[in-house]
Simulated scan of single mutants.
Amino acid sequence: MEKGMKGMDLALMEESSALDFGWVRTLVPLKAMGDAHLLELLQHCPAQMAFKGQNLFEAGSYDRQHVYLLHGDVELRKPDGSSELIKGRSSLFPLADEQPRPCSAVALTDSSILRINSEQLDKLLTWSQVAEYLQIDTAYQPELDDDVDWMLTVLKSNLFFKVPPTNIGDIFTRLRPQKVVKGQVILRQGEIGDGCYFIKEGCAEVLRSADGVQRPIHLADIGPGRCFGEDALVNETVRNATVKMTTDGVLMVMDKLDFIHLLKEPQVNQLPLTALQSVQAQAVLIDVRTEDEYALGHLSQAVNIPLGLLRLKTRMLNVAQEYVLYCDTGRRSHAATYLLQKLGYKVSYLQKGVNQDLDLRRQLASNKGDYLLKDGRATPVLDSGQ
């Protein structure tokens, strides 16, 4: 059978990879991800052992990874000869999170580390936070109350993780309901696939014949929330199993052409790096990264509205004010810009994000003071002692 919405067995994952999921759940920015998206990320990056004296990375190198120290001691050695000792669980942030690496990292003891592909992390983090935005948005639409549960199930399905985050909301406009009856065959082994199905109501069984001719054997029972037939969305292949309803029910169906349409990313207003300085006088900068990332450092006079909380914070914005959104890579700010444009705000995002420029990265490190929105403008937050 196609993979469907299997989900991951957390206990088995922790046992096989030596990951303490509870601790990993506190790391930045992993803590801002939903469980389904985080588990999808972690299944590709189990914990690794680093032995005493082993280099984790070299100064000046590009590895495009987030490297977290889980256990043990690591020394960060800078080119100027200075060093810093990092002990396991003493920091929630990745080690020397900058490309190229500003220092080398050497294990002083046998250590456990977690290496995560930065690109994959950025994609799933954006997906997860846009899904959170949509979850909040449904609360503003009481007519959707009856559909909330299955909509949230769809948002947690790894089937759609390849869809650009800007198109997540369109998933529901592409799914059409289909009433089915007990005994109805939905997919037949050996047929050409042309779509996928979510079970909204009812149950089905999965059957397979060894050669397509012999009497099929029962493989599994599936119920509400499960997806099947998804291989047909991306591959020209025949069905490798038969799915038959065991009760009456309702399926949500997506055709292959609709899925392909969802893969096309829409255009939104973007601002090149060269134009950033010229617009700062009239535009308000909004950092859409998480609160922890913002607290570590941000651009001068930027306010923080995390992507996942964007729907709750729109009341603080002024439709007449111009806003420029940014994040590390441009992916989260691109999605946030699209969502705010749909609501009628004057927004653009910093193309490619702050990671593209050394001066911007230095600004992130030097600006710690908080700003908040007041009448749509950035206002500094004064310390309690002032």
Rank of each mutant, 00 (worst) to 15 (best):
Q48V: 14
K52A: 14
C103E: 06
D63W: 05
A107F: 09
G81M: 06
P79D: 08
D80C: 15
Y68R: 05
G72R: 08
D97F: 03
D137F: 13
A107D: 07
I116V: 14
P46K: 10
E40F: 02
L39R: 11
C45K: 00
L41W: 02
R89G: 10
A131P: 12
D146W: 10
G72I: 02
F21Q: 03
L12V: 08
R89P: 02
L70N: 10
P102W: 11
L144Q: 03
S128H: 15
P94I: 01
V106E: 05
V28I: 14
M13D: 08
S82C: 07
P46F: 15
Y140Q: 05
R89E: 04
A50N: 13
C103T: 08
A107K: 02
M5I: 08
D146H: 15
E14R: 05
P100C: 02
Q120G: 13
A32F: 05
S128N: 14
E143R: 05
T109A: 02
Q141G: 12
G4Y: 02
G88V: 10
S112A: 04
S16M: 04
F51T: 11
S82N: 06
L114F: 13
S91C: 01
G4V: 15
P29I: 06
Q54E: 13
T138C: 02
Q43T: 03
L19S: 01
H44K: 13
E98Y: 09
S128G: 06
Y133V: 12
L41T: 14
P94N: 08
Y62A: 03
H66M: 08
M8Q: 04
F57Q: 10
A36W: 02
A59S: 08
D73Q: 09
V24R: 00
L95N: 08
P94W: 00
V106N: 01
S118I: 00
D122F: 15
T126S: 04
Q43C: 05
R115E: 03
E84M: 08
V106A: 01
Q48W: 13
A50L: 02
L70T: 04
E132K: 07
L39E: 06
F57V: 13
D110C: 00
D9Y: 11
S83V: 12
K123L: 14
S82A: 10
A59P: 13
E98C: 03
K52L: 07
K87E: 15
A59E: 01
R77V: 13
E132D: 14
A59Y: 11
E15A: 12
L70I: 15
L30G: 01
G4D: 03
P102E: 05
Q43P: 00
A32D: 09
